[in-house]
Write a protein that binds this DNA or RNA. Structure first.
Lengths: 137, 137
DNA sequence: GACATATAGTCGCCTAAGCGAATGTTTGGA
DNA sequence: TCCAAACATTCGCTTAGGCGACTATATGTC
């Protein structure tokens, strides 16, 4: 059985205490997104992204689903109502930060023309963006 | 002039990522409290408390006021509206945690009969408790 | 001025955590 | 069955941070 450790409040806040992880959470939002987009948008080496995703998983903030070669990440609400509220509020706050808005804009652009990004050829689109027509492109 | 460094989001969340600091914030609440109460209620060595208070100060979450020998700490709301909301929500969440409630109960008890606590003889009462009659004692 | 009290800061040790570089693993396709 | 793609994990290094023990500072009192 899975090692489902109990929710840890310290770990929860520590997970939010890193800018790369906040950027990842902001990019996910209420969608389900493939790792290759994080690598493309955030720009760092892939193992770095992967380690931060592992951290977020261990903190119980994100969950992952495999689809062929691709791993799709989504945000999961913590079992504690208080923590869930904090997380929602944090995500809302991030949406208003300029650098976070820029990240999301680049994600939208990448999704509209994935062929322009070497890393994204053939990559599955984020789930909710998939059903949205993009007016910007 | 004071070294008023700009508010740091990572630092803000990191400051919340430690149980001793969360307990301190919970004890303060919307009052102004003297360090000796933290030492008495939380029970650890005094330098440990002092270091965590310094961390909270550097993160811009608490402020301090000297009154004779005593240092009074209070919570200050961060300049970012988002961070302020997170902090308020966190404080509200802590109030519902049992261990945090126990801390506050012990604080109330200590304030009603400080003579019973060697560390608290002559210590100034927290400001808002001072104006409140305690029904429990 | 000497001393006690209340609190802050320093030091040495240890663990957590971030990073780049290298390596492993899983999957799909030729 | 071999290979490439997409991620994950490990390793070695460095820094941040927590802790106990100790020391320093500021204030009030005698």
């Amino acid at each position: 059985m899975a090692a489902k450790q109990t929710f840890n409040v310290e770990r929860f806040f520590q997970a939010l205490g890193d800018n790369t992880r906040l950027r990842i959470l902001n990019l996910i939002g209420d969608q389900e997104i493939c790792v290759c987009y994080f690598v493309q948008i955030l720009g760092g080496p892939q193992p770095k992204i992967s380690r931060h995703l592992a951290y977020l998983r261990s903190a119980g903030i994100v969950a992952v689903r495999r689809e062929g070669k691709w791993m799709h990440y989504r945000i999961v609400m913590p079992p504690h109502i208080g923590a869930a509220q904090i997380l929602r509020q944090t995500l809302g706050w991030l949406k208003e930060e300029k650098t976070m808005q820029a990240d999301r804009a680049r994600l939208t652009k990448a999704c509209c023309s994935p062929a322009k990004y070497a890393l994204l050829e053939g990559a599955p689109l984020p789930t909710t963006i998939q059903e949205t027509t993009c007016e910007a492109c």
